[in-house]
Design a protein around this nucleic acid. Structure first.
Lengths: 332, 332
DNA sequence: CTGTTAGCGCTTTCAA
DNA sequence: TTGAAAGCGCTAACAG
């Protein structure tokens, strides 16, 4: 391995000078700078990050800790983060927790042990690990889910506004009885989306009725069961707003099994756009989240905190966009 | 920060002993071990990975460098790798290159600079960066695509066999003129899948005809255009084998636009299973790749090389599985 | 079985 | 503007 000493010797300067050139710090005479550059090229010198990290007490890696790399949502979030990090000299590594607390812990430990420069995390229900990061002084930005009982920079989407737009859209299209399938109580995304549903109905002077609201687990099977239970009710609703994409798939499958025609007999809007929304029949009306921008915003908050650790904690909320497709055409 | 010295003082031993306990090395008297454990707990000691990496000249991170995190293929590959890495004490970080050579270079540099323990990579067309890794003595396993002009451990799927099975299936179902849409020349997955197509036709005594073969770019639009050009031909084929999932989507969209009934008028089989294969209408017959096993196999090769750097380079090939669904039911 | 010692390669005072 | 020197926290020889 070529060390900074090798370069120094070759260039006839001290290691300190090489370090200054490499890091673009302080003034180094142009001539020396050139000699050092040449030596670096000739020896194909690559700095040893471990040594630099040890000395600086911080690496140049950002960790992005998410619950499910299979979720297309995160793909473009990641892209947004990378686009901000790269020009700043940081590399971004992705850690997939599969919603497994043990894995989450592993990665938090790794981020701490490797002294990574910062962490962007979609926190699981239990904020314990995030708190550990915060306590250790690690710059952290939470995305997607709000953090309870801990003060950290956060980027959220306007869940309530998005849900309200979706439900208002169904009502305006002429559906008369709109149900809601949302996620578990206590999960902020689930609760805010339900709030939006309620607000939309209230705004039209039709206060939401409890029997049309279902809580499920954000999974496909949960959406399926919730839909079935809504259809079994008398009188059954004629439209549904579903608070995430997996449950929407389940709901659609249920409707198909029962031969309920969508959108003629039943309208559907899902939260969270999916790449194949255009391909399923009927194509799916969704509330799309600004995923790329979410990543950028998170990265910018992280960069800001890195620069000024004492800055006040802030929360950014991004708007959503209703993508109207076939599943919410007017009822027959 | 709590250092190993703090722990040593607290436990009344030397730093070396603490290190031995932490790393489970050599024999330490049970009593001392207990004292050290207690001190670690009391002080909430967390080792400094940068220091350890510097000393050991190697970190405990594996990098997985892939071209597209949006591709569901990699989700479960990642899972397979993690499941092998974790018990061995390694953490796995994902690096997404978006097929951008500059990003790929960044991550290769980071892996080298951070002295990561190993790299699993889906190499881009240009093997330059992989060669740099190999030259630097970094343990590397290539997945998905074969590496030309470099000797590295590799895990592949049986592209040729999978393609052959798909095409044979279409012929057995009664389709008479089966076309093929594959990827760019020189990309091994594209070429091997085309070979399989040819072999299937030859085995049935119908040598493949050039006009029924299309090369596209592995993207949706490419699949769409290739399908259009096949349908414009006289006589048009009555089935197609498409060599990846994105192009399959494009091909299906094209068939729908032209009101060609699938599978009644036209049979389709795609390579690479997708989570929503069941949801599109018609549901899609695919050649599924053993993604999880692929990840495991790659991780095992990496672990083996870590253990014995001099071991001969090996290539593992995994079989595929034909998942028959609606899009290849017999022709009308 | 345990402690002492000597760095790993880099950055950063400090002095010149 | 430059260099010398002192570690960052840890592990691995080596000696005891």
């Amino acid at each position: 391995m070529v060390t900074i000493q090798d370069v120094a010797r070759r260039a006839g300067v001290s290691a300190a000078t090489v370090s200054r050139v490499v890091n673009g710090r302080m003034n180094v005479a142009p001539e020396l700078t050139e000699r050092v550059r040449a030596a670096i090229r000739e020896l194909d010198y690559q700095g040893n990050a471990a040594a630099r990290n040890l000395r600086r007490r911080r690496s140049s890696l950002w960790a992005v800790v998410i619950s499910d790399i299979g979720n297309a949502f995160f793909t473009s979030v990641m892209r947004g983060i990378e686009d901000v990090a790269a020009p700043l000299g940081f590399s971004v590594v992705l850690c997939n927790t599969d919603d497994d607390p043990a894995k989450e812990e592993r990665y938090i430990d790794a981020a701490l042990a490797e002294q990574m420069a910062g962490v962007v995390i979609s926190p699981s229900r239990n904020p314990r690990h995030v708190k550990r990061l915060l306590a250790a002084g690690m710059p952290v930005v939470a995305i997607d889910r709000a953090l309870k009982g801990a003060a950290a920079d956060t980027v959220l989407v306007d869940n309530e506004g998005g849900a309200e737009a979706a439900v208002t859209h169904l009502l305006e299209r002429g559906y008369r009885s709109v149900a809601c399938i949302t996620g578990p109580e206590g999960v902020t995304t689930a609760d805010r989306r339900l709030d939006g549903y309620r607000r939309a109905l209230a705004a039209q002077g039709r206060p939401p009725v409890r029997p049309l609201i279902r809580r499920a687990d954000f999974r496909e099977s949960g959406g399926h069961e919730a839909m079935a239970s809504l259809l079994d009710r008398e009188p059954a609703p004629d439209a549904v707003f579903v608070a995430n994409s997996l449950m929407t798939i389940g709901a659609l499958a249920c409707l198909r099994e029962r031969d309920v025609p969508v959108p003629g007999g039943f309208g559907v809007v899902g939260f969270d756009d999916i790449p194949w929304a255009e391909l399923v029949r009927p194509s799916l009306t969704t509330v799309a989240q600004p995923t790329y921008e979410l990543g950028r915003a998170a990265a910018e908050l992280l960069a800001a905190r890195l620069e000024r650790p004492g800055r006040p904690v802030s929360t950014v909320s991004l708007g959503t966009e209703l993508r109207v497709r076939e599943s919410s055409l007017r009822p027959a």
